[in-house]
Design a protein around this nucleic acid. Structure first.
Length: 506
RNA sequence: GGGCCGGUAGCUCAGCUGGUCAGAGCAGGGGACUCAUAAUCCCUGGGUCGCGGGUUCGAGCCCCGCCCGGCCUACCA
C-alpha cells in the first residue's frame, strides 16, 4: 500500500465553472478513486485561488465585496462536486482558510532565510483599466489593446525570487524524472524552456495596486504576496505546512506520490516556479506533474463572451453524472484539445455504456433469472469457448494499471469496453438460449449452460469492479445486480439509459 | 521571431525505438440471432498516411524545406 496525494490546480474564476474545469476535477477524482480502490492511502485536494486581483475586479463588477465574491465562486465549485460525484478530501479557499496564510508566511520566511529574495525596482507600462503591465510588443500602436489608451510608465519596488539560481538543479530533477512531467512532450517543453535560461520573477505587488486584497508580505505591509506565489502554496498549506506539521509530514513530506493535475496553460508555474520555491524552502518536491489539454465547445475555445461555456452541472443533470464522467475519461485525448459536443457525449454513452456494458449485464442477469431462477452457477474450468474471454478478463486489471500510470484515461476506459465486447461475443458464440432449449426439450445436462452463465456473471462482476473509479454509482449497481460475488443475482434492471439529443423545439 | 504539438478511411482516432503499418471504433451496405435497453454477433474499409525533396535494400514512422490548425513565449492562468 502506498500513500498517494493528488491535487488539482486551484482555479480563480470570474464566473461559474465550465466543462474545462470539470475535466480537471473528474480526472483528479478518477485518480483518487482508482488508488483508493486499489487499497492505497489517498488524499485528493482542490480549492479556489481567491487572492487574484482579477477577483477584485470581478467583485466590483458584481457589486459585492471580494470576500463575498470568492465565496460565491467557491460555492459554484462545491456544487459541481456534488453534480459530478467527486470525492475530494479537502477544499481550500486561499482567502479565508485559516491554514493558508500562516503557511504562506512560513514559506516566505524560508525562502528569505535562504537568501533567495531581493528587492528590485521594476518599471513597466501599466494600464489602469486592465490593472496590468504590458510589454511594448503587446501594445497596439503604443496603446493598450483593450482600452485603446496609452499606458503609464509605472515604477514599483518589488521583491524578486532568485529563480535563476535553480536552473541546473531543475534540469537535473526533471530529466532524471525525479520530478516527473507527463505526458513526455510536456517534459521536453519544460526542459527546453529552462535550458533557454531562467530569469528571476517578482513575488510581491504593492498593496495599493493589489487594492488591499491578498496576503501582506511579512514585515512589509505595503506589499502583498504575488498571487502565484500565494496560490501555489495551497498545495502545502492545506495538508498543514505552517499550521499542522504532523499532518503535513504525513501527506507531503512522507507520501509516496504527490501528483499535480493541471492545464497546459500553467505548466511553467508548476514545473518551474513551484519546484524552485520548494527547493529554496527546503521542502519535498511534488513527484509528478500531469498536464492535460483543453476542451473546446462546438469547435471553439470555451469562453463566456462566446456564450458557449457549457455548464457541467447542467450537463450532468441532463445526461447523468456517470455519462458525463465517462465522456471525460473515455473521449478526451491525451495530446491535443478535445471538442465537447452533446453528440459526442451521447454517442459515447450509448455505444459504450448502454449498448455494450449495460446490455451485457442486463442480458446476463436476465438469463440467470430466466434459466436458473437467479442462482449463480459455480465457475467451471476453462474451455475452448471461454479461453478468449478469460484471457481478456484476466489481463484487464494489469492493462488498466499501466494505462492509468501513464495518465491515459482514454486507453484505460477502452480496456473496459474491450472486455464488454468480448463478453458480448462470448454470448453469441455460446448461445445460452439454445442450451436452455436443449435442456428442456432434449434433456441435456445442465453443466454446459451453468458454465456459460457463470462465466458471464464473473465477467460482469469484473466489469463492475473495474468501473468503480470511473462510474461510482453505475458500478455499484452492476455489483449489486450481480449479487456482490455471492450465489444469487437480483432482478434485472437497465444500468445505463440510452440518451437522446434534445430536439430543436427543446 | 523562437519553441512545442497535431495534420492517417465521411467522423473520432490507434499506429513504440523504420521492414504484415495501411488499422480500430462509429456512420453506411449486406446477413444472422432473439437472452437483452430496436440492444448483440458476423461480413463489408482500396484512403496520394498535409505538400515537396532527401537518407535507406525498405519510411505515416528518420532528415531538410514548405502549407494548414492549436498552444506556449516568463512576472499576464
Amino acid at each position: 500500500m502506498s500513500r498517494y496525494f493528488v491535487m488539482t490546480a486551484i482555479p480563480y474564476v470570474n464566473g461559474k465553472p465550465h466543462v474545462g474545469h470539470a475535466l480537471e476535477l473528474v480526472e483528479t477524482d478518477f485518480l483518487a478513486r482508482y488508488r483508493r480502490h486499489r487499497g492505497d492511502e489517498v488524499r485528493a485536494q482542490t480549492g479556489t485561488d481567491d487572492n487574484a486581483l482579477k477577483n477584485v475586479q470581478s467583485a466590483e463588477a458584481a457589486g459585492v465585496s471580494p470576500q463575498e465574491y470568492v465565496e460565491q465562486v467557491a460555492q459554484g465549485f462545491l456544487s459541481l462536486g456534488r453534480a459530478l460525484n467527486l470525492s475530494f478530501d479537502d477544499f481550500i479557499k486561499t482567502s479565508s482558510d485559516p491554514r493558508h496564510r500562516p503557511g504562506v508566511e512560513k514559506l516566505w520566511a524560508a525562502c528569505a532565510e535562504r537568501g533567495d529574495f531581493y528587492t528590485k525596482s521594476y518599471t513597466g507600462l501599466y494600464c489602469y483599466g486592465c490593472e496590468q503591465f504590458y510589454t511594448e510588443d503587446e501594445l497596439v500602436e503604443g496603446l493598450c489593446p483593450e482600452h485603446r489608451v496609452r499606458p503609464d510608465l509605472v515604477e514599483e519596488n518589488n521583491w524578486f525570487f532568485r529563480l535563476s539560481r535553480y536552473q541546473d538543479q531543475l534540469i537535473e530533477l526533471i530529466s532524471s524524472d525525479r520530478l516527473r512531467i507527463e505526458p513526455a512532450h510536456r517534459k521536453r517543453e519544460v526542459l527546453s524552456f529552462i535550458e533557454s535560461g531562467l530569469e528571476d520573477f517578482s513575488v510581491s505587488r504593492s498593496m495599493e495596486r493589489a487594492r488591499g486584497w491578498g496576503i501582506p508580505v511579512p514585515g512589509q505591509p505595503d506589499q502583498v504576496v504575488y498571487v502565484w506565489y500565494d496560490a501555489l502554496a495551497n498545495y502545502i498549506t492545506a495538508p498543514g505546512y505552517g499550521s499542522d506539521e504532523k499532518n503535513f509530514a504525513h501527506w507531503w513530506t512522507d507520501s509516496d506520490e504527490r501528483v499535480h493535475v493541471i492545464g497546459k496553460g500553467i505548466i511553467r508555474f508548476h514545473a518551474v516556479y513551484w519546484p524552485a520555491m520548494l527547493l529554496s524552502a527546503g521542502i519535498q518536491l511534488p513527484s509528478t506533474v500531469f498536464v492535460h489539454e483543453y476542451l473546446t465547445a462546438g469547435g471553439r475555445k470555451i469562453s463566456k463572451s462566446e456564450g458557449n461555456a457549457a455548464d457541467p452541472g447542467e450537463l450532468a443533470e441532463r445526461f447523468g453524472t456517470d455519462a458525463m464522467r465517462w465522456w471525460m475519461l473515455r473521449d478526451v485525448a491525451l495530446t491535443g484539445d478535445t471538442d465537447y459536443t452533446d453528440e459526442r457525449l451521447v454517442a459515447r454513452n450509448n455505444e459504450d455504456l448502454a449498448n455494450n456494458i449495460g446490455n451485457l449485464v442486463n442480458r446476463t442477469v436476465s438469463m440467470v433469472n430466466k434459466y436458473r431462477g437467479g442462482a449463480v452457477p459455480a465457475l467451471p474450468g476453462e474451455t475452448a469457448l471461454s479461453a478468449d474471454l478469460r484471457r481478456v478478463r484476466a489481463e484487464a486489471g494489469a492493462r488498466l494499471d499501466a494505462e492509468v500510470a501513464a495518465f491515459d484515461f482514454r486507453k484505460a476506459a477502452e480496456v473496459i469496453t474491450q472486455l464488454g465486447n468480448e463478453g458480448n461475443r462470448f454470448v453469441e458464440a455460446a448461445t445460452p438460449w439454445t442450451l436452455a432449449k436443449a435442456e428442456k426439450k432434449e434433456g441435456a445436462v445442465p453443466e454446459t449452460l451453468d458454465g456459460v452463465l457463470a462465466e458471464l456473471v464473473e465477467t460482469c462482476r469484473v466489469l463492475g469492479d473495474l468501473l468503480v473509479p470511473f462510474l461510482p454509482e453505475s458500478a455499484a449497481r452492476i455489483l449489486e445486480q450481480t449479487g456482490h460475488g455471492g450465489d444469487r443475482v437480483t432482478a434485472p434492471a437497465p444500468i445505463f439509459r440510452r440518451l437522446e439529443l434534445a430536439t430543436a423545439e427543446d
